[in-house]
């Protein structure tokens, strides 16, 4: 090897170096092109393509060193910002942190001091977090085209943490761009989305984490209704209770009478198909107080995104949600409980 180098002609050496530099520069050129595509394209598909390539782009080259550049987490945020921009949503603003050379986002109704960022967990799933709370509000996987909201974090952050400082209208406005992002991913890019407790669909079931439910928990809601103008009714087949709220809004806590396992779930129905379980927690003190006081018994299932074809996903143990029943999501959107694997 050393011999070869010695015997190679100078021109050959220069030529080899030039080739290596060209490779480095080409890499840089690709990078620049992808950045431009991410920043300027008006096509959702091209935007996703750029983001997807950039998050795995390896800019390291022995011969060509590039100056300060962005991190994969920034591309997720830029993807979100640009997609919302395409849908004329201006509530979610991307800002650059000049000290750290990275990006963060703010939401209009929460002001400038509340910052959102993406982080990437051990199995390559991006998570949108609020920088103080650190809990994943939503999980995003570009490769598998899936987005899922994290029910537990939605409650912890929007219902508990923000409730002290913000009105419920501000909080509702803050959730809107997150929902708009999910809907845009589904509509423009065929993502499979799981809106969790933000889902307004009347048929949606929100299964409880606990396998059984003590009826005393429902008794407490019944007793609490005496202070309000709302009534808690018994379901006709004695399979749960229904809380009658305003304008035809109904919240059921029930199980399917034909279901042997008696899996309890929440269901929220309203005439316009516009109200989610999250909305009830936000707007109705009765529901919120009861849910938070009995949260251990009432917590709605909250599953992270894990993929069967991703080896590292099986090894995640320090994830705070790992103690909760874990499921595996398949790229087709089907879900398998991990303990059946």
């Amino acid at each position: 090897m050393a011999n070869n180098q010695l015997t190679a002609s100078p021109s050959k050496q220069v030529s080899l170096l030039a080739d290596s530099l060209t490779t480095g520069l080409t890499l840089g050129q690709q990078y620049v092109q992808l950045l431009k595509q991410l920043a300027e394209t008006e096509s959702a598909a091209e935007l996703l393509d750029a983001a997807q390539q950039l998050v795995t782009f390896d800019l390291d080259n022995v011969f060509v060193k590039f100056p300060q550049h962005y991190q994969p987490t920034d591309y997720y945020l830029l993807l979100m910002g640009r997609l919302l921009e395409m849908h004329s949503n201006t509530d979610f603003q991307i800002q650059e942190d000049l000290d750290h050379h990275d990006f963060y986002a703010t939401i209009s109704s929460l002001g400038d001091q509340v910052h959102f960022k993406f982080i990437i967990d051990a199995n390559g799933t991006a998570q949108l977090i609020e920088t103080q709370g650190q809990e994943a509000l939503l999980y995003l996987n570009l490769k598998h085209k899936m987005l899922r909201f994290n029910n537990r974090a939605l409650v912890n952050y929007f219902i508990i943490a923000l409730q002290r400082e913000y009105s419920d209208l501000d909080i509702r406005a803050a959730v809107k761009p997150l929902l708009a992002f999910a809907h845009a991913l589904a509509a423009d890019l065929d993502f499979v989305i799981d809106l969790g407790i933000l889902d307004v669909n009347n048929d949606q079931h929100f299964a409880l984490q606990q396998p059984t439910l003590s009826l005393t928990v429902i008794d407490r809601l019944f007793v609490a209704t005496a202070e309000f103008d709302y009534m808690l009714l018994n379901l006709p087949q004695n399979n749960g209770a229904e809380l009658r709220l305003d304008r035809g809004i109904k919240m059921d806590l029930q199980f399917d009478p034909d279901d042997y396992s008696q899996q309890w779930f929440f269901k929220v129905q309203d005439p316009d198909n516009q109200v989610s379980f999250f909305d009830l927690l936000l707007h109705y003190q009765l529901v919120r107080q009861w849910y938070l006081q009995q949260r251990e018994a009432l917590a709605v299932k909250s599953d992270p995104l894990l993929f069967a074809d991703d080896q590292s996903s099986m090894a995640v143990t320090d994830d705070p949600v790992a103690t909760e029943p874990t499921v595996i999501c398949h790229p087709d959107g089907s879900v398998t409980p991990l303990d059946q694997e």
Partner: peptide
């Protein structure tokens, strides 16, 4: 038999 109401407990 008469039941008063269809509420959670009656």
């Amino acid at each position: 038999r008469i039941y008063f109401g269809n509420w959670w407990d009656r």
